[in-house]
Each structure stands twice: as C-alpha cells, then as structure tokens.
C-alpha cells in the first residue's frame, strides 16, 4: 500500500524559518533527511521524495471564466503551516507509514532539538478494486 507523507513545516517569522538556523544545525537537518531517503531506498519502500521550493515562490492559480490562468503571488499570509516536502512510500501496513512519518517529524531543528513537524499521512488510491 502506498502512502503520501506530507511534511508541514511551521512558518517562521520570516518566510523560510531555516535561514535563521545556525549552519551546523541546518547541516544536521539536511543529513538527517538524506539518511531517511537513503534508508527508505535500501528497504525497498521509497517511491518518491521531493522537497518543495520556499513558499515565497508559491503561486495560487485559478481559472478565469475564459479558462486562462489567474495567478496570485505568494506568500499567503493566512497559512500558518506550509507543505515543505513529501514522500511517497510503498509499505506493507499502515503502521509502517506512521513509523516513517514519526521519524521524519522528529527531524532536528535549531540546537538539534526535534522539530516535531506535523506529517499528514494519506493513503494513495492504489488498491485493486474488488469484483462488484
């Protein structure tokens, strides 16, 4: 069963909180994320993983009545958290997806303290349908 693990990061006072971290903290954080990906690749569970560009670059797009895109620039002040990145994993049971999510949630932040980010876990609609 495939799950999408969506990493919701708290919005910093600025746009992208990590720019204020000490370099060694940021390095530790990056190392941690790379290790997760490597471990998932080695366990045969990784389908894909991507980090997303900072929310300052985000756009909101809606179709105008003529179908052309109406583009609004970010950042979007109303959002307290933003999607920082995601994993899609293929695991044998939901508990395993929660386990991976918990590990990612505890990624080190400033001073090496766990960030405890909220990771939204959603199952991908990939089950074969039963005969009806």
């Amino acid at each position: 069963m495939k799950y999408m693990l969506m990493m919701n990061a708290k919005r910093g006072t600025g746009d992208w909180g990590v720019v204020k971290w000490a370099p060694e903290d940021l390095k530790a954080h990056i190392r941690f994320m790379k290790k997760i990906n490597q471990d998932l690749r080695e366990s045969g569970e990784l389908v894909s993983a991507e980090g997303l560009a900072a929310p300052a670059q985000a756009k909101l797009v809606r179709a105008r009545t003529d179908g052309t895109p109406a583009v609004t620039d970010g950042p979007f002040a109303e959002a307290k958290e933003f999607l920082a990145g995601y994993w899609i994993v293929d695991v044998e049971r939901p508990e395993r997806a929660y386990e991976i999510a918990a590990r990612a949630s505890a990624a080190p932040g400033p001073g090496g303290a766990p960030l405890n980010m909220a990771i939204e876990v959603r199952e991908v609609m990939s089950a074969p349908p039963v005969e009806v």
């Binding site: 495939k2 690749r41 366990s43 045969g44 990784l46 389908v47």
Partner: peptide, 13 residues
Amino acid sequence: LVPEATMAQRISR
C-alpha cells in the same frame, strides 16, 4: 509503479 532502484532493493532483500 515504483522506481527501478526500489524494486532492485526488494529483490536483493
């Protein structure tokens, strides 16, 4: 529908 590297790991495991 998984990457080849992921499947290769499954086989090797």
